[in-house]
Simulated assay, not measured.
Amino acid sequence: MSRLHPVIVFTGSAGAGLTTVRRAFTQLCARLALTPLLINGEGFQRYGSAEMEARIAEALRKGEHFSHFALEAYLLEELEETFRRYGATGRTRYRHYIHSAAEGEALGGYPAGTFTPWEESPPGTDLLLYEGLHGAVKTERVDLPRYADLLVGVVPIINLEWIQKIHRDTAERGYRPEDVTDTILRRMPDYVNVIAPQFSRTDINFQRVPLVDTSNPFIARDIPTADESVVVIRFKDPRKFEVDFRRLLARLDGSYMSRYNSIVIPGGQQELAMELIFLPILERLVAGRCTATDR
Rank of each mutant, 00 (worst) to 15 (best):
E81R: 12
R31T: 10
A148S: 09
H5R: 06
V194M: 02
L32P: 09
G63I: 10
R46C: 05
L76Y: 07
T82S: 13
C290M: 15
E161F: 09
K62C: 06
A16P: 01
Y191L: 08
G15R: 03
I157P: 07
R221P: 05
T92I: 10
L276N: 00
F278S: 00
L144Y: 00
E58W: 08
R84F: 13
L28P: 06
F206I: 07
T114A: 11
Q270P: 00
Y260G: 06
V286L: 13
T11A: 01
G17D: 06
V154E: 01
L18Y: 00
R221I: 08
L211W: 09
D179M: 10
L127A: 05
E51G: 12
D182F: 14
R141V: 14
T26A: 15
T125D: 02
R284Q: 10
E119L: 10
E64D: 10
E80C: 01
Q164H: 02
P210M: 05
I39R: 04
Y175W: 14
T202M: 06
L272M: 13
H167G: 04
T214P: 01
P197G: 02
Y175Q: 06
S255Y: 04
E53R: 08
V264H: 03
P111S: 13
P156R: 07
I265N: 02
E161M: 14
F199E: 08
F235D: 03
P280V: 02
T114W: 08
A292M: 13
I277D: 07
P189M: 13
G17W: 00
Q45N: 13
Y147A: 08
